[in-house]
Amino acid sequence: MLSSRYTFIYALLMAAVVVASNFLVQFPVMGTLWGIALGDLLTWGAFIYPVAFLVTDLANRQFGPAVARRVVLVGFVVGVTLSFVAAPSRIAVASGTAFLIGQLLDISVFNQLRRQTWWRAPLAGSLLGSALDTLLFFSLAFAPIFAFIGPNEDFAISSAPILGVFAAEAPRWISWALGDLVVKILVGVVLLLPYGALMNVLKPMPQVAAAR
């Protein structure tokens, strides 16, 4: 069945994105930009994770929200399971929770806007999903209040200037969260290019088109 085959492909892509981002979020971007220490601002996971929203939106556009939710669920189970091997348990738990809630929000927003201009649904879904995902992930992964999930990294909770530039200081993970969100927004905008390019290849199935 075509939908089953594509669901499997989409789920594999989703799992790969989750595992890669969970692993790379442990590594700050080294170097400086305009005098700002990038290690206080960004992790490499921010550049990979927005691809998850692209996968969800393509599945949603082609097969509808039910298949998109299946893709998210399969990607969630596989991704989190593998993440316990590739990353600390607290990172895996935080990522799984944020991923599931953020992706479901993306699906809901996409469905509300799918009849509008082609770029509005994927862009709005990605931006809102990224904001919620970032809030949940960094809070659960690094905030001391959630230490019962697992041990924290001293580097993550040490103080640093907000966004690496403002005089006020905050735990380093807050700057990571703000920096990652900015990158996710920028990457989400850039990913409209492959989404637009694939629109003519991955066309909605007849039942999805009829529902529109």
Rank of each mutant, 00 (worst) to 15 (best):
M1C: 13
S3H: 13
Y6E: 15
F8H: 10
A15E: 06
A16G: 14
V17P: 04
V19A: 03
A20P: 03
F23S: 13
V25H: 02
Q26A: 15
Q26R: 13
M30L: 15
L38T: 12
G39F: 04
L42T: 03
T43E: 02
W44D: 13
Y49I: 08
A52F: 11
F53A: 08
L54A: 13
V67T: 10
V67R: 11
V71I: 03
V71E: 02
V72C: 09
V74I: 15
V74G: 09
F76W: 15
V78E: 06
F84R: 03
V85E: 05
V85R: 08
P88E: 03
R90E: 08
I91D: 08
S95R: 10
G96H: 08
L100A: 12
I101P: 04
G102L: 05
L104T: 06
D106F: 01
F110D: 00
N111T: 02
N111F: 03
R115P: 01
Q116Y: 08
W118F: 14
R120V: 00
G125W: 02
S130I: 03
A131T: 14
L136N: 07
F138S: 03
L140H: 01
A141V: 05
F142A: 12
P144E: 14
G150Y: 03
E153N: 15
D154R: 14
F155P: 10
F155R: 15
F155C: 04
A156T: 09
S159A: 15
A160L: 02
P161Y: 04
I162F: 11
I162L: 15
F166R: 13
A167S: 14
A167F: 12
S175E: 04
G179W: 00
D180T: 09
D180R: 09
V183S: 07
V187Y: 05
V189C: 08
V189I: 12
V190A: 14
L191I: 02
P194N: 01
G196S: 14
A197I: 11
M199N: 01
M199C: 06
V201W: 12
P204F: 10
P206Y: 04
A210W: 07
A210F: 09
R212C: 06
R212E: 13
